[in-house]
Structure formats: C-alpha cells, structure tokens
Design a protein around this nucleic acid. Structure first.
Lengths: 232, 232
DNA sequence: ACTTTGTCTTGATATGCATCAACAGCTGGT
DNA sequence: ACCAGCTGTTGATGCATATCAAGACAAAGT
C-alpha cells in the first residue's frame, strides 16, 4: 500500500480543530504539535492504560480504537479517518481505555492535551472548536449505543455503510456511490457487535437483493434508498 | 415522594464542575447559573433537537436521558444523579440527541454552555475540570458500548448494579450494601438493551442464587463478590 | 370492600444470531 | 508454479433472548 507524503502538513489546514482559526492562530496550534509520524499497519499509537494524555489527528490513512471485553475479546469502539481527532478516551483520569491501532499506513500528529488546553485559554475559537468536537463525539456515541439496542444485523450494517458513505462524501472529492473499506471484515464485525460469519452472510444477502455490489473491499452502493430504508 | 430543599445550594459545593476551585471562583460559577428549578416526575428538562445549549447539574433526585430508535422505541442512554452533569449531547451542532426526563422530583440547575466556556478562559481550573468531565463521559460511553457487545443479560445487570452501587457509595454517606433504584424496571431494561421480561427473569435468578434480596425497589446486595464475578 | 390501573412476574413459543466446522479464494513466499 | 497461511464464505446446529400471552400483586380511586 503506497504512502503519499503531503508537505502542506504543518499548517494544520483541514484539521477539524483548526476550523475557523486565523492563519496566525493555526500557526500557534502547529507549534504545540508534539510529534507527527507514520505508523505501519497494525502499529499502535497508544495502549490501554497509557497516561500520555494527548489527542491525535489523522492526517492520512485510518485508525481503529479497540478495547478488551471482560471475557477477553477485542471490541472495536471506533474508526477514524483523515481530519478526525481521536484519543479523547484518555482525557479522563484513568488513562486510555482503548488501544489505538493503525489500520493501514497512516500519518498521525500528536497534540499534548495540556498544551492544547493552555492554548485554548488564549485562543477562544480553538476552545470552542475543541468543546464542539468532544460534544459531537459524545453525541455520536449515543448514536452507537442506540444502534446496539435491538437492531438487526442487517440494519446495523446498512447504517454503518450509510454513515461511512456520508463521512467519505464530506471529506473527499469522491462523490459517487462507491466506498472503499480500509479495515477488514473482522474489524467491522467487532465494531458492529456481530460475529464475522453473520456479517458475511448479511453482505451476501445485500448483494442478492441488488443493493450493493462487491469487489473485495470496494463496495458499490447500487440502491442507496433501499440502503437507508434497511438501516432504519 | 417527599422533597427536601437544600439552601446551601448556590455555593456550587458538591458540584463536580466546581471541584478544585477557590471560593471566589465558585462564586463566579454560581453567577452564570441561568436557572435552578424543580422538575416533577416525568417532566422533561430538555427535548430532542432543542438548541438551547446548556449543561445541567443534578442537585437532588435523578434524571434519565432517552432517545428514540429508528423503529420508534425509546432507549435510555444514561442515568444521572446528584453531582452529575448532563446535557453534553447538545454541545455538538445538531441540538440535543436525547430527551432529559426527571425520574422523580428533582432539583436541577442550568448553566448556559456559552457562558461556561467564556468563564473557562479566565478560570483555568474550571476549563480543566470541564474537559475532564467530558473526557470521562466519553470514556464511560466506551464502557457502555463494550457492555453491549456480547454480554449476557445477567452480566449486564450485575455490571449495572455494581457500577450503580459504587456510584452511590462515592456520593452518599450510605456505605452498606443496599441500593435504592429510583427508576422503574422498564427504564433499566431499556438502558441495558433488554426486554422487561428478561430483566425480571434475571432478577429472580439472582434472588434464587442468593446474590441479592428484593423489597420493591430496594435491593440488598447479599453477595457482592459473586455480583462482581457475574458482571465480568 | 371492590374495581381499576399500572407494574411486575412467569410460562410457552419463535427467531436471530453465535458457534462449530468445512471449504473456497487470495496472497505471499520459497 | 506450488504450497502455506490468512481471510472470507457457506452450511448445520444450539442457545439466549424477544415476543406473545396470561396471570399475580400492589397502589389508587370510588
């Protein structure tokens, strides 16, 4: 999987945190970035119980966060893509609750949380943006919770696909009904609370219904209306 | 259900937000409280899609937040007790994602989020505390998500009970192994992602095992060790 | 005291998903 | 080109929980 380097990197353009900031403020923000580095597939950005207290921004690639259930099975708690911040689960007082793992070769920049909040006191727009992002994160988790309640395997998958598709439309130039899934099927299953076999069956069923078409990890969404209907 | 009035109220003592603040800073905080009022059982503090943008603190009583699934069924997304902040789900840009409903007669104070963040820029300890609380909230949701994955009905209930018990031990003087549940069984079921019948059956099973004893909504935790064991 | 209503319990049945197991299709390595 | 190992698919079975249904119990109203 080839890795493109962008060099406009340090101006924080495209970073959701920097939205609405002036150039000068963005520069201030870029000054407190602690590190910016590449991670290989399956490499960990942070570990459960780490006390680092940084938040991280995905520049390129994709990230999953996963935790271990009480009976020892890994659960994927979130996926993160370019522009997304992750690591908020470590902001509380008990260290990170998840491992953050690169799904593919990924460029990530690390922002020490303490420096970020210090900067927030002088840059009000930044504080506002950070609160917004954390609020949204809380909201999206409410959604995830609702999804886990009594939704069928098919609904869960369709909802995942529609949300993922919308997310990609918003942040890339690609506007057509094709999505590429960087993560493997097992990760999606662990994210949706299904076993991989069930996920596979549901995918096959959607293909039979003519709702999607598959070429490995590329999915064509043939009938988006039905997809939304099934997601409900 | 009788309602005790506390009058030491406006000093914000006991409020998790005010933790670590000086008296003077607590007073500043109390100045921006928009309203403090009682809610009757089943009265709503805010509605889904409201754009109010306040956060709320439970002073007395208890609150649940509930959302509607895509097939129209209510889901309880959280319970809040004295000292807890709620309303973070409205901080994002799409209004509140849940209804907040009083479970019993409840005293709540409302803090406009904008005023709160404005105060945060000058009172650093307050900003820190707010970020911490939001971080913890994100973390606890991760936990809830993990719980929903492949945990049996019994495990879910036992986990709920242990967490609830710990919460109550921390914030009240009552240290013994008795918990009083202000919410009804249906709410608990909707919170745990179970149907009420299953919840009832699991409770009965725990009684038969000698782990708990019931007197209406008062539960005696007879065998806390087993409870923790079953919760895993 | 006797309905009435809501909350909870218990039983019988159905179903959706996990689990176990075998196999098929790719991918990478020597 | 071949085998090995991983990833995904498909089938058979079992089980936990939802659903449907009926009854028990308590609190509240007349």
């Amino acid at each position: 999987m080839p890795l493109t380097i962008i060099d406009s990197a340090h101006n924080c353009r495209g970073c959701l945190l920097a939205e609405g900031l002036t150039n000068k403020q963005r520069q201030q923000l870029s000054m407190i970035i602690h590190a910016k580095r590449h991670y290989q597939r399956n490499e960990k950005i942070y570990h459960i119980a780490d006390k680092i207290k940084s938040v991280y921004l995905v520049q390129q690639g994709s990230i999953k966060t996963e935790a271990i259930t009480y009976d020892g099975r890994p659960v994927v708690t979130g996926f993160y893509f370019p522009g997304d911040l992750f690591g908020f689960d470590g902001i509380g007082d008990q260290g990170y609750l998840c491992d953050a793992v690169a799904i593919e070769n990924t460029l990530v920049c690390e922002i020490p949380f303490q420096k970020l909040t210090a900067l927030c006191t002088s840059v009000e727009g930044l504080q506002h943006q950070l609160f917004m992002l954390m609020g949204q994160r809380i909201g999206s988790h409410d959604h995830a919770l609702i999804m886990m309640h009594n939704m069928s395997a098919e609904s869960r998958l369709c909802r995942f696909l529609t949300i993922y598709h919308e997310r990609m439309k918003k942040h890339t130039e690609n506007q057509d009904a094709v999505v590429f899934l960087p993560m493997n099927k097992d990760d999606i299953a662990r994210y949706l609370g299904l076993c991989p076999e069930t996920l596979s069956r549901v995918l096959s069923r959607l293909v039979n219904k003519g709702v999607i078409r598959r070429h490995q990890r590329r999915l064509e969404l043939l009938d988006i209306d039905t997809l939304y209907e099934l997601a409900s």
